[in-house]
Design a protein around this nucleic acid. Structure first.
Lengths: 126, 126
DNA sequence: ACTGTTACTCTCTATTGGAAAGTACCCACT
DNA sequence: AGTGGGTACTTTCCAATAGAGAGTAACAGT
């Protein structure tokens, strides 16, 4: 069987498309967007306020990527001022549950990481 | 209560240290290193061969970051040629299980993403 | 003496990220 | 009538980061 035909996705292969998708859902802002949308739908600037430190450019870019991959729905109401609601698709919900788990594991275990870092830095302080 | 004192980690706060740790474990190569080490320990260049497309520089950098955060153990044997074994700590194992879940979810659901993308691109083809 | 092996480290360039300003649209206020 | 404000982006420009590739050190084998 050649590589091109019906080979199972494998993130360890440099050219595997799953790499790119993985990078989208685990991107700096992708994670936070997915996790936020797990609660409820958000408008663009609500998300911007919710997620500390995102620039408008990066939020727009992240949402476009996630929309194209089928993770979020974009619902633009033709009103003035513009109103665009973002929500998860069912595929997006699956992804969001995974990244939410990861994000909250990190929050919970942060003290252990901090401790490990202090020990590491201590050990090689000159 | 001021912000500085004993506030719970919150990834949505721009200055929260958990952001940085989350970026380390979800970094492009961090994910793949953690997932690989879930199986067994690896030597530096074994990992390099296992994970398609990593440069030596990025692998070294990723391993150092993960070591400092307390996720991997580095065991350098004083032999020639050098032999350095990397393995997960128990903290690292917890993280690795989370990212493994994510990576394999992506592999499994890749067809759905591909389909969504085709539909998206189709819809706005001129 | 010369090659091979391993685990990095350094240097240089390409890519990406982010801040800030710009755009378009209409409403409310003065 | 003109000014300011709100929303959802888009564009521009500069700084930070990622990556490729070469360099380094140390010794064993031929």
């Amino acid at each position: 069987m050649t590589e091109a035909l019906s080979e199972a996705p494998n993130v360890n292969r440099a050219t595997c498309p799953s790499r790119i998708v993985l990078e989208h859902v685990t991107s700096r802002w992708g994670i936070l967007v997915l996790a936020a949308l797990l609660d409820r739908s958000y408008r663009f600037s609500e998300l911007r306020r919710e997620i500390g430190g995102v620039s408008e450019k990066m939020l727009a870019q992240t949402l476009q990527t996630l929309e194209r991959d089928g993770f979020v729905n974009r619902d633009a109401k033709p009103v003035i001022p513009p109103r665009v609601d973002y929500s998860l698709t069912s595929l997006g919900r699956e992804a969001a549950e995974q990244v939410w788990g990861l994000a909250h594991w990190v929050e919970r275990r942060l003290p252990a990481v901090t401790e490990a870092r202090d020990a590491y830095d201590e050990a090689r302080a000159s």
